[in-house]
């Protein structure tokens, strides 16, 4: 009897869900066309691609196309730069985004918030090309910093690699901090205000409220965002690393990332196979990292894991 009822309810459940599956269909089809179909192209990375023979007709060459990534000392530099910049972006970026989100919610009731929020989000809308000229206006040989602050005996910023980690970080956070805080602002906004009121009654300070209520509640969101960004640790913002340093050769030691290296090496060669080898490499490492860090998260706190 018991068992029977269970199966019927299961069946009716299944039937009930059918409309939802249909609702999902456009999304799934989109996901499939946009994200899964192109994966077929991965095989180009293992082939000596010839236009006349097509993708399937070209010769298999194994890992030959990957060799150029590791050929020179640059391999170390570009992988170091990509990973280190991204680590800093992830760690510092999360802290900055959460702090902004917390502060925004605190002043949310005030009128100023309506002005401040657009202002800190605005840089995100500016194209990197324009950003690069803004930076140039500050740092160029006849730019603002050299002419006014340093009184003419300036630094030629675009040939001194040592300053660039700081410049890149500044530009990155100036551009992205406001926008990346939006998602946290939204999830903090969803916290039940009754919790804070209760805490206030118990005499909790603002700091205690933040650390004891806000952060624990949005923790799953933070972990999810972290996992997302870890998956992209081997890719870099092309505009930030190519346009902002004005593609200046002298800065490669601190501005070369995997993406810019691939771009610079293959501009002349126009080699489809080698460029896709590079992105396959990035994706596979990213995939391994996401799976790995998700495993780790699941071990530590199974509720917060993505899958």
């Amino acid at each position: 009897m018991e068992i029977r009822r269970k199966t019927t309810s299961k069946k009716s459940k299944r039937v009930n869900y059918i409309p939802f599956y249909f609702m999902m269909l456009p999304g799934i089809i989109y996901l499939f066309i946009n994200n899964y179909l192109p994966m077929f192209g991965i095989i180009i990375a293992f082939k000596d691609y010839k236009y006349a023979r097509g993708i399937l007709g070209s010769k298999w060459v194994g890992l030959k196309n990957f060799r150029f990534l590791f050929k020179t000392n640059d391999a170390f530099i570009m992988i170091r730069n990509t990973v280190c910049y991204n680590l800093v972006f992830i760690i510092l970026g999360t802290i900055v985004a959460i702090s902004i989100a917390v502060m925004m919610t605190e002043i949310g009731k005030m009128r100023v918030a309506k002005v401040i929020q657009p202002i800190i989000c605005f840089p995100n809308m500016i194209s990197m090309v324009i950003v690069s000229y803004l930076v140039y206006a500050f740092l160029g040989n006849s730019g603002y910093i050299n002419n006014t602050i340093l009184h003419g005996n300036g630094i030629s910023w675009y040939s001194e690699p040592k300053y660039w980690p700081l410049i890149i970080l500044t530009v990155h956070f100036w551009k992205n901090a406001g926008y990346s805080s939006i998602i946290y602002t939204a999830s903090i906004g969803g916290i039940d205000p009754a919790l804070y009121e209760a805490a206030k009654l118990d005499g909790a300070t603002k700091m205690q409220q933040i650390f004891k209520i806000t952060l624990p509640i949005i923790r799953p969101m933070i972990l999810m965002m972290l996992l997302f960004s870890i998956g992209r640790i081997f890719t870099s913002d092309f505009g930030l690393f190519l346009q902002v340093p004005m593609n200046s050769g002298a800065l490669y030691d601190t501005t070369q990332t995997i993406d810019t290296y691939v771009y610079r090496s293959l501009m002349e060669l126009n080699n489809v196979s080698m460029s896709s080898a590079a992105s396959v490499f990035q994706s596979i490492i990213g995939f391994i990292l996401v799976i790995g860090s998700n495993l780790l998260v699941r071990k530590l706190d199974s509720d917060s894991a993505l899958f």
Binding site: K64, F68, K71, T72, N247, S265, L269, N271, M274
Partner: peptide, 16 residues
């Protein structure tokens, strides 16, 4: 092709 891609990169670094 492997050498050429590395050379192209080094060229960009110093040539200009």
């Amino acid at each position: 092709a492997t050498e050429a891609s590395a050379i192209s990169n080094i060229k960009n670094k110093y040539l200009y």
